[in-house]
């Protein structure tokens, strides 16, 4: 996966099929225009254990529209056709991968132009067979570390591929008003062990939070805040005369979140 260097990464997350396959492609393009460096494409799942209500609702909308894991992966090819050039990570729970077949999953992801995969309910200990496939297909399996990882950080970080995803605080995905004070220390610890960029996600929802985190990590992941924005724009996104304006509003919101990362060198 080719990541920009000397630049804080802005990594948005959206759910494939929320609110429709076509709109997901449009929203991906809008995010690229807004300065996204990597896109996390979420695959909707009936029982998303690591997700809060916002992403649960997005998954329910996408599933109601018959989105599936194979269809979500095929969306990557559609995105490529429409001009999305940034790396795309397939974010999916493990069970749909098992049903598709682990090898078929990697083959399909590669064939459709994805750049990596992230499976939030597959911890290091269970990831053996997938790591092997990830290597064979050249698609990094992105690892997560959490505030509870402690002595596991070194082991996970040293094996990390692509980038390393730090979970900001205890809990599931979702907008948080405050982030823990210990976050800076945790990120420092992770950075000490990691050879790949260290990004932080879970709960990051305002430009202020992004600005605060900018110097402590190599990038941020924003999910629920963007998904919430999509939820607010649902009706307009699905009305032909308002669609473009809604997409532009979404892009401008995304740009506002990325903006603090683009400001020249801040002092700490």
């Amino acid at each position: 996966m080719r990541l920009p260097v000397n630049r804080s990464l802005f990594i948005p997350f959206i759910v494939a099929g929320d609110p429709s396959a076509d709109l997901t492609v449009d929203l991906a393009l809008a995010l690229q225009d807004a300065g996204a460096d990597v896109l996390e494409l979420g695959v909707p799942y009936s029982d998303p254990l690591a997700d809060g209500p916002t992403i649960q609702r997005a998954a329910a909308r996408a599933l109601a529209g018959q989105m599936t894991l194979p269809k979500a992966i095929q969306l990557v090819a559609d995105m490529r056709k429409k001009g999305v050039k940034i790396p795309i990570i397939i974010f999916t729970y493990y069970n749909p991968v098992l049903q598709l077949g682990e090898e078929s999953f990697f083959a399909l992801a590669q064939e459709n132009g994805a750049d990596g995969v992230l499976i939030p309910d597959l911890p290091f200990e269970e990831s053996g067979p997938l790591l092997e496939l990830s290597e064979r297909f050249g698609l990094p399996l992105i690892s997560l570390v959490a505030p509870t990882s402690k002595q596991r950080i070194e082991q996970i970080a040293s094996a990390a591929q692509g980038f390393l995803y730090c979970v900001s605080s205890l809990g599931v995905t979702g907008v948080r008003e405050t982030l823990p004070e210990s976050l800076g220390h945790f990120l420092g610890e992770v950075k000490r062990h990691s050879r790949v960029p260290v990004v932080v996600g879970f709960g990051i929802s305002t430009p202020e939070q992004v600005a605060m985190l900018k110097d402590a990590c190599d990038g941020v992941v924003v999910g629920s805040a963007l998904v919430q924005k999509i939820e607010q724009l649902l009706e307009r996104l699905q009305t032909s005369e308002e669609k473009n304006a809604a997409i532009a509003e979404f892009a401008s919101y995304a740009r506002s979140l990325a903006a603090p990362l683009r400001e020249p060198c801040s002092s700490r």
Partner: peptide, 19 residues
């Protein structure tokens, strides 16, 4: 590894591995 043959294991978010 918490396996009963092929079954069992720990398929949870990283946060829960320590608990």
């Amino acid at each position: 590894h918490g396996r009963f043959g092929d079954f069992g294991g720990k398929f949870v978010p990283e946060t829960l591995m320590l608990p």
